[in-house]
Design a protein around this nucleic acid. Structure first.
Length: 252
DNA sequence: AAATCCAGCAACCGCCGCTAG
DNA sequence: ACTAGCGGCGGTTGCTGGATT
């Protein structure tokens, strides 16, 4: 409230970008670097909102961006990361070089989400995010059309459990000076990680009172889900950023 | 061949956290 | 300590082209 709009509505062009605009923006960012997006339109001579410039650059103009043809490996990784992280598209994208959060989000909503939904689960999202926006098109094309009442898109419909029980708690991540961590107590198992660590993981030291009794947080776990977590932890530990953080056992 | 439906994608919107002043 | 501004993120919308009727 009271916050200034990110850019004036009037005089700002909207809609699809032209190749000319792309060219201007790309050359500007190459010359001046990223950041100060609010100033970019003025300085570059674009009649666009700064946010729009940023989005265009990040999702389309940035070097090394890959478009389309998401491989099976990438798809598998997206599914696994989504299991672990929920709808944290930027984090998922961070593990997929050349892919953008927007592309992954779109891919999920249009393809993987539907697959998962029709398959009856195996997908996790953040309860706090309240995945209330099951893509209507997707759900409409789902053959069963019945599972959504008990297992909305994004929640696993684990056999033998209620949807609530099956809901894996994917906590809201908070920043950790360049990394990500989940505000949960570090358990001994988490400290040892996958066993190949040398104990040098840079844990953040302040388990904040984030998790209260509300989060579905089963400690038993095991099985495929735990395998996924271990595999992901192993994968992610190859990343220096990730070394600063950890995924605790209580995720399961 | 025309109309309609649907999937995919680009872009917008609004909220939130961080940080500089 | 407080506040305003900025950047970033996730959800949503709307357009477009291909598929189907």
């Amino acid at each position: 409230m009271g916050r200034r709009a990110c850019c004036a509505k009037e005089g700002v062009k909207r809609g699809a970008w032209t190749s000319k605009e792309d060219e201007i923006l790309a050359s500007y960012v190459k010359a001046h670097g990223e950041g100060r997006w609010r100033e970019v339109p003025q300085r570059a001579g674009l009649r666009r909102c700064g946010k729009s410039c940023r989005l265009r650059w990040l999702n389309y103009l940035r070097p090394n961006i890959k478009h389309g043809n998401i491989s099976d490996e990438e798809e598998d990784l997206i599914i696994r990361l989504h299991k672990l992280l929920g709808n944290r598209w930027s984090l998922i994208a961070g593990r997929l070089p050349g892919r953008t959060d927007n592309e992954i989000k779109n891919y999920w909503n249009s393809t993987l989400g539907r697959k998962a939904s029709c398959a009856g689960g195996g997908v996790v999202t953040t309860p706090d995010a309240g995945y209330h926006s099951t893509p209507t098109k997707a759900s409409a094309s789902c053959e069963t059309g019945e599972q959504e009442a008990s297992a909305p898109l994004g929640y696993p419909a684990a056999s033998g459990t209620t949807s609530d029980e099956a809901a894996v708690w994917a906590p809201k991540p908070v920043r950790c000076t360049g990394g990500l961590f989940f505000l949960r107590d570090v358990t001994p198992e988490a400290e040892t990680g996958t066993g190949d660590g040398d104990g040098s993981l840079g844990y953040c030291s302040s388990p904040a009172p984030f998790g209260s009794a509300d989060e579905p947080c089963s400690s038993s776990g095991g099985g495929d889900w735990m395998d996924d977590v271990r595999a992901l932890a192993s994968f992610l530990e190859s990343d220096d950023e990730w070394l600063r953080c950890q995924v605790t056992e209580t995720l399961i």
